[in-house]
């Protein structure tokens, strides 16, 4: 993947995360260990800033999407 494609992938990932996070109830927060805990507004801020927390959130989304497309999640859900 060249730099341009990587940039486009990142922007798409950001859009996906921001769209999904917007659906969270406003009184819910996500604890991400030592990074802290964040409501949806704070998560969106970190993702838009692309700071360390924002990058971690995007990394988790990418892992999830990759696992989904490889069928790993279905395999896990049906393993018990």
């Amino acid at each position: 993947m060249n730099e341009e494609e990587k940039k486009k992938q990142l922007e798409t990932l950001k859009e996906i995360v921001l769209m999904k996070i917007a659906t969270m109830p406003k009184h819910y927060k996500l604890s991400i260990g030592g990074e802290g805990s964040f409501n949806k507004v704070q998560i969106a801020e970190h993702v838009n800033k692309m700071d360390d927390t924002g990058k971690q959130i995007l990394d988790m989304e990418l892992r999830f999407i990759q696992a989904l497309s490889r069928g790993e999640i279905t395999k896990t859900l049906t393993s018990v």
């Binding site: 999904k20 996070i21 659906t23 969270m24 109830p25 819910y28 996500l30 988790m60 989304e61 892992r63 999830f64 696992a67 999640i73 896990t76």
Partner: peptide, 16 residues
């Protein structure tokens, strides 16, 4: 419920 997929994702990350 709104946000169920995000809550699912976090639990899946812990599981994996």
């Amino acid at each position: 419920e709104p946000g169920a997929l995000e809550r699912f994702k976090a639990l899946w990350m812990n599981c994996e």
